[in-house]
């Protein structure tokens, strides 16, 4: 029992269960899944699909944070990816062809990779603090996205491209398959090879790990490039969902949600330790939160208040200070009972 209680994912999972419970009390049938035209439908499937972009961004963010970094520019990267892809499709001769969609995806991801390399260069090679290095792209990035779309909200119609967000494969949403597939691949890559340990080593002490023969600069550089690439993919899913490139609002505050998801999942911002399954739980909590708010009939504008409460509760419950305080209280009570 104490083993379960002490597990680092205990409180996040309690939060997730509480949110789902609140939904079920209000609408008992909400967690049901129905089959329609061979596709699965229902709230759990919606959560899976809606969590896809955030999961991709949070995945990259977890690896960045593991190296004691942070990437504030992911929201801007999301906007740029959408802007580039849709502008590419809008300016092509055959917007509805599969080739155009593929071209758009490749061009957008390529540009995002370059942006990630820029971040990686600032952090790994120039030794600039990650928070400020990525603040540069965060500020300038939305300007660049506006520049690409010329300040307009570009809308296009391209069936192959919109499959990214609204398509189904084997009954499951394509967006979810992409995001969770990438998650599995990355998780296997870092946890079944030494890569994850090397990342943690860099996060604990970059200099010591360099002296021990870890290529810390290359690792840090790669992590930022990968994070931007994943954000770009998330941006494509966002853009395919609305088929409109809104440079101002696409991916707005996603960097904050992603950092929250990572922190709720028990990864410390101080670096050196990361927990990919925790990040997944964090992402699910944040996505479920919006569903709960809608189901409970609370104005969506107040969502941020609930987010604040969840974050404060989870971070406080996970803080060692509060745990020792509570443990001390329990000890004292037991002592009093014994003496009485």
């Amino acid at each position: 029992m104490t083993l379960i209680y002490k597990h680092r994912l205990f409180w996040p999972l309690v939060a997730l269960a509480a949110l789902l419970l609140a939904c079920t009390i209000k609408r008992p049938d909400i967690l049901g899944i129905t089959v329609l035209d061979g596709h699965l439908f229902g709230a759990p499937i919606d959560i899976l699909r809606n969590s896809a972009p955030l999961l991709l961004v949070s995945l990259g963010m977890t690896l960045v944070i593991a190296t004691r970094g942070i990437d504030l520019s992911v929201g801007a990267t999301v906007a740029i990816a959408g802007a580039v892809a849709l502008t590419f499709i809008a300016s092509s001769d055959h917007p509805a062809s599969v080739g155009t969609a593929l071209g758009a995806i490749i061009v957008a991801l390529g540009l995002c990779f370059i942006l990630g390399c820029f971040n990686g260069m600032l952090v790994a090679n120039f030794g600039i603090q990650p928070i400020i290095a990525t603040l540069i792209l965060m500020t300038a990035g939305r300007g660049v996205a506006m520049l690409i779309t010329n300040g307009q909200i570009t809308t296009v119609a391209s069936a192959p491209f919109s499959t990214l967000a609204s398509g189904f494969l084997l009954g499951l949403p394509v967006a979810a398959i992409i995001a969770y597939g990438v998650y599995l691949v990355v998780a296997l890559l870092v946890r079944r090879t030494a890569l994850g340990m090397l990342l943690e080593a860099v996060g604990i002490n970059p200099e010591a790990s360099r002296l021990a023969g870890v290529k810390s600069k290359t690792l840090v550089f790669t992590v930022y490039a990968l994070c931007a690439l994943l954000s770009g993919l998330a941006g494509l899913i966002f853009a395919a969902n609305t088929m409109a490139a809104d440079a101002n609002n696409a991916g707005l505050f996603i960097e904050l949600d992603a950092i929250l998801a990572v922190v709720i999942g028990g990864t410390s911002l101080a670096g050196g330790k990361f927990n990919l399954s925790g990040t997944l739980v964090g992402v699910l909590i944040i996505t479920t939160l919006s569903l709960t708010v809608t189901v409970l009939g609370i104005s969506p504008l107040v969502t941020s208040l609930f987010k604040a409460i969840v974050v404060i509760a989870v971070t406080l419950m996970m803080s060692t200070r509060l745990r020792t305080m509570l443990a001390g209280l329990r000890e004292r009570r037991r002592f009093q009972e014994a003496s009485a």
Partner: peptide
């Protein structure tokens, strides 16, 4: 011992809500 980034992020969400 909450990171300043996270604590003030929570403050931001709280105030906005």
């Amino acid at each position: 011992d909450v990171q300043p980034f996270v604590a003030t992020l929570a403050g931001m969400f709280l105030a906005r809500g």
